[in-house]
């Protein structure tokens, strides 16, 4: 379910949060579906349970998941919207990248083609259950 890179220098708990959010966005886990317990994820990924707890606490704090005492943790109903809202800043990244590419003399069509490709792939990944890191 998750693919953690312990050597990347990126904190493990950030990777867990990001990948959980990705799964929710592509529909790999749906609202009210249960997410893996801290224990099972800890043993599956060989990651310190306290680290997973930290990631899970943050997801819950941001109301992307909720817990049912004695049962487990579940994806919130409006998780997708909440995650989407936090990604708004990424539009600025596109502006910055495009600006510099334009200065460098790159054709506008290259940029618009890339944007189209990204949208096509995103739609594809949402229909077929998750294939992360697919860049073609």
């Amino acid at each position: 379910m998750f693919n953690i890179d312990k050597l990347s220098g990126r904190p493990v708990y950030e990777q867990i949060i990001e990948q959980m959010q990705y799964l929710i966005l592509v529909g790999g886990i749906v609202p009210d579906e249960q997410i893996p317990s801290v224990r099972s994820l800890s043993l599956d990924l060989s990651v310190n349970p306290n680290t997973i707890q930290k990631a899970y606490n943050e997801l819950e704090f941001n109301k992307i998941t909720y817990s049912v005492p004695g049962v487990g943790r579940f994806v919130a109903k409006d998780a997708k919207q909440k995650i989407g809202a936090s990604y708004d800043k990424k539009v600025d990244v596109i502006y910055d990248a495009s600006y510099w590419l334009a200065l460098a003399g790159v054709e506008q069509t290259v940029i618009t083609d890339t944007v189209s490709k990204a949208f096509t792939n995103a739609k594809r990944h949402m229909v077929e259950r998750m294939k992360p890191n697919d860049k073609n």
Binding site: V38, R39, S42, L43, S46, P49, N50
Partner: peptide
């Protein structure tokens, strides 16, 4: 090391 780690993780959880 991995085996021992997993036993510790399990005990921490349980």
């Amino acid at each position: 090391r991995n085996l021992v780690k997993n036993v510790i993780y399990s005990d921490v959880c349980e």
